[in-house]
Amino acid sequence: MQLGWFPIGGYGTFAHLVLPAITLGIMGSGWYSRMMRSSMVEVLRQDYIRTARAKGLTRGRILLRHALPNAILPIIAMIGIDIGIFMGGIVVVESVFGWPGIGQLAWQAIQRVDIPVIMGVTMVSATAIVLGNLLADLVTPLIDPRIKLR
Results as ranks from 00 to 15, higher is better:
Leu44Asn: 06
Gln2Asn: 15
Phe97Tyr: 08
Thr13Trp: 11
Tyr48Val: 04
Ser33Asp: 11
Gly30His: 05
Gly103Asn: 02
Ile62Asn: 05
Gly103Val: 03
Arg53Ser: 11
Met27Gln: 15
Gly10Pro: 07
Ile22Pro: 05
Ile75Gly: 01
Ile62Cys: 02
Ile72Lys: 02
Pro69Val: 01
Met119Phe: 14
Leu149Asp: 05
Tyr48Met: 03
Gly60Pro: 05
Ile75Cys: 00
Arg59Cys: 07
Gly28Pro: 07
Thr140Ala: 14
Leu73His: 03
Ile85Met: 14
Arg34Ile: 13
Ile81Gly: 05
Ile8Lys: 12
Gly84Thr: 02
Leu149Trp: 13
Ile75Pro: 08
Trp5Pro: 07
Gly4Phe: 10
Ile118Lys: 00
Ser33Arg: 03
Leu57Glu: 10
Ile147Cys: 08
Thr58Glu: 07
Ile90Thr: 15
Arg150Cys: 06
Ala52Cys: 10
Leu105Pro: 02
Trp107Gln: 06
Ser39Arg: 01
Gly56Ser: 13
Met35Lys: 00
Ser39Tyr: 04
Ala21Gly: 10
Pro141Thr: 11
Val113Ile: 15
Leu19Val: 07
Ile147Asn: 06
Ile22Tyr: 08
Gly132Ser: 06
Leu138His: 07
Ile8Gly: 13
Pro74Gln: 10
Leu63Arg: 08
Val124Lys: 00
Val43Ser: 08
Leu138Ser: 04
Met119Lys: 00
Ala52Gly: 07
Ile115Phe: 14
Leu131Pro: 09
Leu105Val: 11
Asp82Gln: 10
Val117Trp: 07
Pro100Met: 08
Ile115Gln: 10
Leu63Phe: 11
Ala126Arg: 09
Met78Trp: 07
Leu57Ile: 14
Arg59Phe: 11
Ile83Pro: 00
Gly30Arg: 03
Leu3Glu: 12
Ser125Gln: 09
Leu57Cys: 12
Ile85Arg: 01
Ile76His: 04
Ile76Tyr: 06
Ser29Trp: 05
Ile76Leu: 12
Arg65Val: 14
Ala15Asn: 14
Val117Leu: 04
Leu149Arg: 15
Trp5His: 04
Ala54Trp: 00
Arg61Asn: 15
Val43Trp: 02
Ala67Asn: 01
Ser95Met: 11
Ser39Pro: 03
Ala52Ser: 13
Ile102Cys: 00
Gly103Ala: 00
Met40Pro: 04
Arg61Pro: 07
Arg37Tyr: 11
Ala15Ser: 14
Asp114His: 02
Ile22Leu: 14
Met36Asp: 10
Asp137Thr: 00
Glu42Ala: 15
Leu135Met: 14
Gly84Leu: 05
Ile115Cys: 09
Asp144Lys: 02
Thr122Gly: 12
Arg112Tyr: 11
Arg65Leu: 12
Ser39Ala: 15
Thr23Tyr: 08
Thr140Glu: 10
Leu105Gln: 10
His66Phe: 06
Val124Ile: 15
Arg65Asn: 11
Gly98Trp: 03
Val139Gln: 00
Met78Asp: 02
Lys148Ala: 02
Gly88Thr: 11
Ile90Phe: 13
Ile8Arg: 14
Leu24Val: 01
Ile62Met: 01
Trp107Val: 04
Leu135Thr: 09
Asp137Gly: 01
Val117Ala: 09
Lys55Met: 10
Leu57Gly: 13
Gln111Cys: 13
Phe14Trp: 15
Val139Met: 13
Asp82Lys: 04
Leu63Pro: 02
His16Ala: 08
